[in-house]
Write a protein that binds this DNA or RNA. Structure first.
Lengths: 233, 233
DNA sequence: ATTATATATATTTGATCATAAACCAAGGGG
DNA sequence: CCCCTTGGTTTATGATCAAATATATATAAT
């Protein structure tokens, strides 16, 4: 009975094609690479990625199950165009779920993780100053998930990732906008880390909710403008 | 431009085979029809259902994305065997998510829905008296989701369904157990409906959490016994 | 006897093909 | 003139097949 669990070794993962395709599409979705309302066609994606239709099909199915795209029966999938109500819905849910995650993370905070978080803030304020907006969104993502991972919850993490995927096409705008107005985007991040450092879970949750709330404010504004211009799709 | 959205009509769904297979497997999962640790083989299921492998494959992929089954790379899927930590994780998450759902539902409660809920409680106490345990679980499910639907959240509902799927193989035992001890399983249900009737969202949430917490207590007990008997898988 | 190697088997994963469902445009009847 | 129908086209969906990967079995060597 060879039990590897004592050796501290991780199973080497032989990356399957479906996994690869999924990761690529998911990444593009998350960073807003597809427009809301856009239809995604299997053959097209398969050709672009140089694979057969099958792995693309599986990946799209998976993304549909995670609500990153919506599946129209017999008519493929498209990235959802969210109404204002849906956005508020998403915001409230993110408050609850990510709020819980940060509270739980507060209990497991190590000094290394705190140092990492401060490093991430440094890096972000540096790139913010240089107005490199795409990587700003990526850094924001890294910051948040570094915290969420410390919640040690294999239940919460997939839910949060699904929520971020659903927000993806819209949050991109948010991170671009508060990049423009003199880099104040990381104020709440500092607040969060300070609260975590002194083990104040409740304060960390409130600061996080402010952070989420502010980015949604920007999205909602932009959304109202789109609507006035005659809809999205 | 024929816009059906004003007519209150729902699109008639031409049920695809994959959908059908998914519904069947999901249902069996939810009611604990597969044992924790059990491996699900595509060919086997396809033969049993009288279809080709393809729809089964798609359905299993979808269930894997919803965390109802775990997918081992190149080795198919199996229904997860949850540790005690995972169960606690699930409980805390259900507190947060379903708690939010019931609070939001409290704001949208109609008198018809309240009447429906009381009817469901009546029906459940009737079947509980007759010790028909399988349908008791089904009625419990109906009761909870009647409430959650009133939250009017297309974001929360899929998350809750995923959480119930993950609990499925374990919660079955719970509903069977508190069926045995003189039908006191619906006390909290009465409490929830009363709170909803007087619009007390916070009380409804607390009663719901008690309801969830109690069923998890039973599951945890049972889980400890299994562990002592030498593990599940 | 036990470990290592090789073979065989089982099962997923990826590709290709057939079918059928939904969209779009053009034409015929009211 | 408009609506309904009808064809063609596009696209997903379902079936089958081939390739790759993991597990189990058996055989041989130390």
């Amino acid at each position: 009975m060879t039990d590897d669990s004592q050796l501290g070794l991780r199973r080497i993962e032989r990356e399957t094609v479906q996994e690869r395709v999924y990761a690529i599409l998911r990444d593009k979705l998350m960073r807003g690479g597809f427009a809301p309302g856009q239809k995604l066609k299997i053959a097209e994606l398969a050709a672009a990625l140089g694979t057969s239709a099958m792995p693309v099909r599986d990946a799209l199915n998976r993304l549909a199950a995670e609500r990153a795209v919506e599946s129209l029966p017999n008519r493929g999938v498209r990235v959802p165009a969210l109404s204002k109500d849906s956005l508020q819905d998403l915001r409230e849910t993110r408050f609850a779920v990510e709020g819980l995650a940060v509270e739980r993370a507060a209990a497991n905070m190590s000094s290394e993780t705190l140092a990492n978080l401060r490093r991430l803030i440094e890096a972000q304020s540096a790139t913010d100053a240089k107005h490199v907006s795409e990587s700003s969104a990526e850094q924001n993502r890294a910051f948040h998930f570094t915290i969420y991972r410390q919640s040690n919850s294999s239940v919460l993490l997939p839910i949060i990732e699904s929520l971020w995927l659903q927000c993806g096409p819209y949050l991109r705008i948010a991170s671009e906008m508060f990049d423009g107005r003199d880099g104040r985007g990381i104020d709440f991040h500092v607040e969060i880390v300070d609260a975590l450092a002194r083990g104040d879970a409740k304060a960390a949750r409130l600061a996080l909710q402010s952070d989420i709330g502010r980015s949604f404010e920007l999205v909602m504004n932009e959304h109202a403008i789109w609507q006035r211009r005659g809809g999205i799709a």
